[in-house]
């Protein structure tokens, strides 16, 4: 990471051949999160995209997740996760049609790539293997409410 000052009004951050104009220092962690594995939230988002496909876009995913997880999910958080997934190559996107609620703006529709598909499968397999190895009566009993 290279900080470059100029005698003008902004400061550039040069990172992987991209120049970011820093106006406010916020959410710096975005630079540190580029790893190829899958975060927990990203995994859920990725699966939801698969569920909603081909009509998967951030609002729909956020609504779906809110229903499934029972807590408030902001569109921004979903949007960020979608962006990251796309950057990692698990998702691909194209612009869809506009609606009245969107004020005439188009939405970005996401679909899963082959890499994404392999990723969810791998994750599922890891989970299955782990589930299979849990001995009987190991997990304490409780009522699924």
């Amino acid at each position: 990471m290279l900080l470059r000052g100029t005698f003008s009004f902004g400061t550039y951050l040069l990172y992987e051949n991209r120049r970011y104009t820093i106006n406010l220092i916020l959410n710096i962690d975005i630079f540190l999160m580029r790893r190829s594995d899958l975060g927990e939230f990203e995994e859920v988002v990725l699966l939801t995209v698969a569920v909603l496909s081909p009509e998967a876009y951030s609002v729909a995913v956020a609504e779906e997740l809110e229903e499934q997880l029972g807590r408030m999910i902001t569109t921004g958080a979903v949007h960020a996760a979608l962006q990251r997934l796309e950057k990692k190559g698990f998702l691909t996107s194209k612009m869809g049609e506009a609606t009245q609620e969107r004020g005439g703006r188009r939405k970005r529709l996401f679909s899963i790539t082959v890499a994404g598909s392999r990723m969810v499968h791998e994750v599922r397999e890891v989970r299955n293997r782990l589930w299979g190895r849990i001995g009987p009566d190991t997990l304490p009993e409780f009522n699924m409410g």
């Binding site: 106006n23 916020l26 959410n27 958080a77």
Partner: peptide, 21 residues
Amino acid sequence: AFIRLANFKRNNSDYYSPQFT
């Protein structure tokens, strides 16, 4: 939630917008 660095104005090779500098 949308105000995050990834969404900030920036110059990148895909969408270049000229700066005064």
